[in-house]
Write a protein that binds this DNA or RNA. Sequence first.
DNA 1: GCACGCATTATTGTATACAATTATGTTCTG
DNA 2: CAGAACATAATTGTATACAATAATGCGTGC
Lengths: 236, 236
Amino acid sequence: MTLKAPKPSKVNVTAESISNALSLAIHEHRLAPGTKLGEDDLSDIYGVSRTTVRTALLSLSHHQIVEIKRNRGAYVAQPSLTEAHEVFEARELLEPRTARSAALKATPDDIALLSDHITQEHAALDAGDRGRALYLSGKFHLEIARIAKQQTITDMINVLIARSSLIIALYWRRESALCESQAHHDLIAAIGDNNAALSEELMQSHLVDLHSALNLHEVPPVEQNLRAMLLGDAKS
Amino acid sequence: MTLKAPKPSKVNVTAESISNALSLAIHEHRLAPGTKLGEDDLSDIYGVSRTTVRTALLSLSHHQIVEIKRNRGAYVAQPSLTEAHEVFEARELLEPRTARSAALKATPDDIALLSDHITQEHAALDAGDRGRALYLSGKFHLEIARIAKQQTITDMINVLIARSSLIIALYWRRESALCESQAHHDLIAAIGDNNAALSEELMQSHLVDLHSALNLHEVPPVEQNLRAMLLGDAKS
DNA sequence: GCACGCATTATTGTATACAATTATGTTCTG
DNA sequence: CAGAACATAATTGTATACAATAATGCGTGC
C-alpha cells in the first residue's frame, strides 16, 4: 500500500497537516459525505489536542467541505442538489476562460507535468483505486489553473473541485464514465498546441459533460463511521 | 455617532461577531492594511478569551483579508500589486455574467433594495463618511450577485469585494472618482429593465474602470495602531 | 563607537480544565 | 403500552495555564 496517507506517527502534526489529511481523504472518497468528525476521535487519532483539531476543522469548514453545526459538531458536507448545480455552473464560468489563458502560457514543462498527471491517473485506475483516480483528476484541473498563473482564480477553482468531489460522491449517475479521460487527453493536446480557442471550448464541453452526469434527485443523508476510513482496518 | 459599531458591551460576543466587526472595520478603512491584530489586544477590547479571538482571526485569514504569520501574529492583509490585478480580473470574469443573470431574475423589490443602497451611499458621502460609502458600494455589488440567486458565486464575489477594499486602500489613484456612482445608477436602470446584455456590459465597463483607477507601483508596508481605529478615541 | 551575543520580555502555539449545550436512556404517568 | 419529563452522559464552546518561538534591550568586547 502506498501510504503517504494520514498516519503521521508523532512528529510535527500541525493543524494544516490534519486539514490536508482530511481533505485528501474526502477527495479520495474514503470519508463519505455526512461522516461525523468528532473532535475527541480526531485528537485521539492524530495525537494532538482538540484545539489543534478544531483549527483544522475550521479551516475545512471555510473551504465548505466540512459543515460545523453549533453545539452539534463537524460533519463532512453534504451539498444539496442546488449547491451541486451552482458549483458546476461556477466552474463553467471560471475554468474555460482559465484553460484559454493556460493555453497561451503553457510551457513544454507544463505539458509534461500534465501528461504525468494522466499517467498517474491511469495507474491508479489500473490499481483499482477509483478514489485516488478521482483525486488526481481534480488535480489535473487545478494544474491547468496554475499554469494560467492566476493564483486568485486557482484558489477558487480549488475549492470548487473539492466540493465537486463531494457532489460526485452523492449525485454521480454514470457507472464507468469517470474513467473516460479522453477529454483530458484532448485538453492536453490543445493546450500543448497553444490553441486558446480550442482549449476553452474543450474545457467548456468537458464540464458540461460532467455536469450532465449528475443525478437529478436528492439523496438521503447518511451517517458514517470514522476510524476505519482514516486508518484502514489495521491497528487500533 | 451612529454606533452599530464594534463595541458590543458584554453579551453574546461570539467569534463571528468579532469577525464581522473587524471585517466591517476593514471594509470601512478604519483598519488600514498592515495593522497588527494582536490577540491580547483584541481579547481585551472585546472582553473574550484569546481562543475566541483566534477563531475570528482564522476566519478572516481564510477570507484573505487577514494574514497570519506563524509565531508572528495576525495583520490586516496587504495585497501585492499582482494580487490586486488578479482580484479585479477575477471580478471581471464573474460579475458581468452575474449581472446578466441578475437582470433576468430581478423583481421590483430587488430594484427597490438596490435603490435604497444608493440612497444610503449618498447619505454616507454627504456625511463625509467615505469609508462607509465604500463599504456600501461593495455591498451594492454583492446585492446584485444575491439577486442572481447563485450563492456559490455570491460567496466568491464577497471575498473579492473584501479584498478590493484593501486594494483600494493601498493602490487608489483618483481623488474624487469613488463618488461617481453614475455607473451604479445606470446598472440599476438596466437591471430594472431586465436588459441582460446591457447589464453585463455596464458591469464589465464599470469594473474595467475601477481596475484602471489603480496605481501602478508598489506601496511600502506600514504599521498602524489598533485601539483608536476600533474604539474611536474615546475611552481607555 | 559599533557590532555581536546573551538575557529578558512579549507574543503566539498548544494543551488542559471547566462550563454550556445537546443527545440519550430511564422512569413515571395516563 | 405510549408518551413525556427528568436525570445522566457525551460532546462541543470557552477560558485559562503552560510551552515554544520570536522580538527587544542591554552589556561586553573589539
